[in-house]
């Protein structure tokens, strides 16, 4: 039996620009400069197939949005202001299985390296400790707004 979902420690709308139905997170649990953890319960919806499994693209997008929150929080702490970013690469990525309706996903990302506007982030999706997917994500980020 899965444990009860933890409450969000941060205001999602403040750290992630996405809104429903594209928003793929329910809560942000951890936000550090080089690490973030988010949660999402899989419910019936536009990103779930007829067998009740979350789409692969939605799984990837959830990890990417968690990374967006991490980047945003780090930028804010450094006084850099709003960042604009996009997922531009994916490597060494594998999916063991897709999560199903009723399961609670935990996304965890950690910053591996930054070089200029490109950052390499390791991302993972888990359900009750079981790793469903993991791999390396590359993001392009640039400052979109004035420094904070």
């Amino acid at each position: 039996m899965e444990s009860a979902p933890r409450e969000s420690a941060f205001d999602l709308a403040e750290y992630v620009p996405h809104r429903p139905p594209i928003l793929g997170l329910d809560a942000l649990l951890v936000l550090e400069d080089a690490r973030a953890v988010a949660r999402r319960e899989v419910r019936p919806g536009p990103d779930v197939d007829a067998q009740g499994a979350l789409w692969e693209a939605a799984l990837i997008e959830g990890i990417a949005q968690t990374a967006a929150a991490m980047h945003g929080a780090a930028a804010r702490r450094r006084g850099r202001g709003v960042l604009r970013g996009m997922l531009v690469g994916l490597s060494r990525f594998s999916i063991e299985r897709l999560p199903k309706v009723g399961e609670v996903l935990e996304y965890e990302v950690s910053l591996v390296r930054e070089l200029d506007a490109i950052s390499l982030v390791h991302g993972q999706a888990r359900v009750a400790g079981e790793v469903l997917a993991a791999g390396d994500f590359q993001f392009f980020t640039e400052q979109a707004g004035p420094p904070a």
Partner: peptide, 10 residues
Amino acid sequence: DSLDGVDLVV
């Protein structure tokens, strides 16, 4: 390209 650049450094 630039994406390879960060992978290369790592």
